[in-house]
Computed example of a mutant assay.
Amino acid sequence: MEAEEEAVAVPTRSGPTRIVMADDHEMVLHGVQAMLAHFADEVEVVGTATDLAGAISVVRETSPDIVLCDIRLGRDSGLDLCRRVKQLQPETHVVFLTVYDDEQYAYQALRAEASGYVLKRVDGSELVEHLQRVVAGDVVIDPTLAGRIAMSAARVNAGEFWPGARLGLTQRESEVLALLVASHSNKGIAAKLVVSEDTVKTHIRGLYRKLAVSDRGGAIAVALREGLYQ
Rank of each mutant, 00 (worst) to 15 (best):
R205F: 09
D138S: 08
V67Q: 03
E126A: 12
V181I: 05
E129N: 12
G74Y: 12
G218Y: 07
L211F: 09
Q171C: 10
D24Q: 11
R148C: 11
L177M: 06
A22S: 05
A112S: 14
A190L: 13
T12A: 11
E226K: 14
E197L: 08
G54I: 12
M151D: 15
R111N: 15
R209K: 11
V181H: 03
A3Y: 10
T92C: 09
Q171L: 11
G147V: 05
D51E: 14
E2G: 05
E129T: 15
V58P: 05
K187F: 10
V134Y: 00
I71D: 09
S183M: 14
A190I: 08
F161W: 08
I189M: 03
M151F: 10
H184F: 12
A223R: 02
D51K: 06
R209A: 15
E91P: 11
K120D: 12
V122S: 12
H38F: 10
N157L: 12
A165N: 13
A106V: 02
M35S: 11
L228Y: 13
Y105I: 06
L127Y: 02
V213H: 03
V45D: 00
G54H: 07
H184Q: 13
L36T: 00
S196K: 11
L110N: 01
A40P: 04
A146D: 08
V200H: 06
S183W: 13
L193E: 00
G168P: 01
A158W: 02
D123R: 04
D215R: 13
S183I: 10
E4W: 05
A55G: 10
A165D: 13
A221K: 15
V128W: 04
V10L: 06
L127M: 04
A49F: 08
T98I: 01
M21C: 05
V195H: 06
S196N: 09
V8G: 15
I141H: 08
S185M: 13
G188L: 06
V94A: 04
I204W: 06
V85W: 03
M21E: 02
T98Q: 01
D198Q: 09
F161G: 09
S214Y: 13
A49R: 07
T98F: 03
T170F: 01
A114G: 08
S183G: 14
